[in-house]
């Protein structure tokens, strides 16, 4: 999809919300679900069309954890860090995946653009803890090793060597 096509789509989303500044969050959400992240061009266009400053749009987009300002990977991993999972050692699982993906600083997506690593507060599957989801599918009673094995399998399916 070219930049122009993408911005045309963003413009449609803005129109669908009546180009109202009060709909800013809804517009950002819809834009994110269309492209899985918000680009600078998206936000600049939204600001322009709503008649508010770009700094304001950026301010809202950076306030909410849910908005991503970088492209996400093909597969989204969410490690549950709710109370039950946390007590049953979800942190080492997160750390292992973090290292596996060679993430540094605030980056959540690996260099190949294959995986994005996030945490989630509680999936309501505490009986299966610790859990993680990959593209929405729940994997129960994880350990660092079993989690990495799942990622290895996906890499193989994608035709990428370990």
């Amino acid at each position: 999809m070219s930049m122009n096509q993408r911005l045309a789509r963003v413009s449609e989303i803005i129109d669908a919300h009546g180009a109202q500044p009060s709909q800013l969050i809804a517009i950002l959400q819809d834009t994110q679900s269309a492209f899985n992240y918000l680009s600078q061009e998206d936000m600049t266009l939204i600001a322009q069309r709503l008649g508010i400053s770009t700094a304001k749009v950026y301010s809202v987009a950076t306030f909410y954890e849910n908005f991503s300002l970088e492209p996400k990977g093909k597969h989204i991993i969410r490690v549950c860090d709710g109370t039950a999972c946390h007590v049953r050692k979800s942190q080492p699982i997160y750390d292992a995946i973090h290292d596996y993906m060679h993430l540094t600083g605030k980056r959540k997506t690996d260099a190949d653009g294959l995986f994005t690593l996030e945490t989630v507060a509680c999936l309501g599957a505490c009986g299966l803890s610790p859990v993680l989801t990959i593209d929405g599918e729940v994997h129960a009673k994880m350990t660092p090793d079993s989690a990495l094995a799942l990622l290895d399998t996906i890499r193989k399916e994608e035709g990428l060597a370990k």
């Binding site: 600078q40 600049t44 600001a47 400053s53 700094a55 304001k56 749009v57 950026y58 301010s59 306030f63």
Partner: peptide
């Protein structure tokens, strides 16, 4: 910047301990 000059160049970004005043992006 916003109210007197109508420019809105600066705004808050981030949240909590990471909150800063900065231009967009």
């Amino acid at each position: 910047c916003e109210e007197k000059q109508g420019q809105g160049i600066l705004d808050f970004a981030g949240r909590g301990s990471e909150l800063q005043v900065m231009p967009a992006f």
